[in-house]
Design a protein around this nucleic acid. Sequence first.
DNA 1: CGACTCATTTGTTGGTCCAGATTTCATCCT
DNA 2: AGGATGAAATCTGGACCAACAAATGAGTCG
Lengths: 241, 241
Amino acid sequence: MIPDRETSFPGAADEIARASGSAVDAVLAQIRQMIVEGGLKVGDKLPTERELCERFASSRNTVREAMRMLKAFGVVEVRPKVGATIVDQRMNRAFDLFSFNVTEISRQTFDDIQGFRELIETGSVTQIFAAIQPSDLSDLREINREMVRAKSVIEASEHDLRFHTRLVSIIGNKSILDIYRIMTPVILRIMQRGKTRRTIEGETFREHEAILDAAERRDALAFQYLMRTHLRAGLWTFEDG
Amino acid sequence: MIPDRETSFPGAADEIARASGSAVDAVLAQIRQMIVEGGLKVGDKLPTERELCERFASSRNTVREAMRMLKAFGVVEVRPKVGATIVDQRMNRAFDLFSFNVTEISRQTFDDIQGFRELIETGSVTQIFAAIQPSDLSDLREINREMVRAKSVIEASEHDLRFHTRLVSIIGNKSILDIYRIMTPVILRIMQRGKTRRTIEGETFREHEAILDAAERRDALAFQYLMRTHLRAGLWTFEDG
DNA sequence: CGACTCATTTGTTGGTCCAGATTTCATCCT
DNA sequence: AGGATGAAATCTGGACCAACAAATGAGTCG
């Protein structure tokens, strides 16, 4: 079920901090065990590095590398003199994860991401209509105007994304919003592809406005139709491929 | 827009590998710059640690900690005596990210996660019905039977999750499947909460079967209704809170 | 009450040593 | 002579150590 992960986070079913090859991994597993079995919560502090050294009979550099791992995972925050504090910034880390672009956006990725957004943004029309307030609408219209005023395509894309993120936030579902935020870097790259100043000032702005109009009069069918066509626009960029 | 990230991945708008406080972060930023501006692709190899040391005028341990960071992010895979190879295992890392349970599932989290699943699994009925094959249905029924035969609640939950994941895979959208996989650990914990042997052998199995029956006769309304009530079951676990 | 000192803790550095992979190259057989 | 073979030198990451720098909390003294 779990794919090959050579040096990954120690799985839940691991033995008692058994060394899975590397000494750092062993320390990592033991710290993990200490956290879960010690019932440590967010805000609690881990022992000092040197204490962990002697407790696990490891060198300080080994412990430090394990710490660096936990830091990368957003599980601890370590400051000089104060030590390592347990935090939960994994969502931010997941965000960072995808801001590192190693592969180009493919047609397939475009379809998949936009398909996902279509599912979210058209499927949640009921929740959106139930929760939307006049202040939400004015916010969204303001964001839309800011998009037109943007000085560059990059900046406009950010406003475009802000528009959609703001819309998704109305659903009131933190998990959905988190996932949307995680995908931010990828969505941004999609938006910047094949977007010209004309399309922003024209189509994108008008489509956003039409979507908001539909939301204002609680026209679910129009909202879904407009959103769907809006998200499917931009496909032409890949048509030649 | 981007939240506070103290020691995070260097953002795209960073200056030229300027030290954002930590020396490790500086090296990290420079390696990142080397990758993106050097046009390094997946499969390419990074210079040796010692070469990076002298190139960045840093100690080996500093470079090693930066490497450890990249490893945690799933960007490089480093093997002894071979070196660091660029990979893209960020999805697996995102998966690992949430297998580290630091916080307890709250009623709010339950609602949000199940709300997200409802959106995905009921909203994609059109795509599922369009793509589903008889082999998919027989697979799903087999998984359902395996769930009943499971020896423990934990194991049964895994089959339960496999059932839903298999269903979602029919959509044919890699992004949605990836996200579903990322949420696997959280969903598993939700499933294991308040699930007894009786509910598995009884309700869960029957609900799955009913969903498959609806899929077999392409009854979208029934499919959505059954899935909705299926996902909303288990809410009682939190009702007392 | 404020400034100051001090001790503790993390950050960083430059090393050592080791085991294993890789490469080199001399040797040996055909 | 030419290719195969194997041993040795070299290279590389893994683990570790000692030491110093910097930051900061805590206690102390004026």
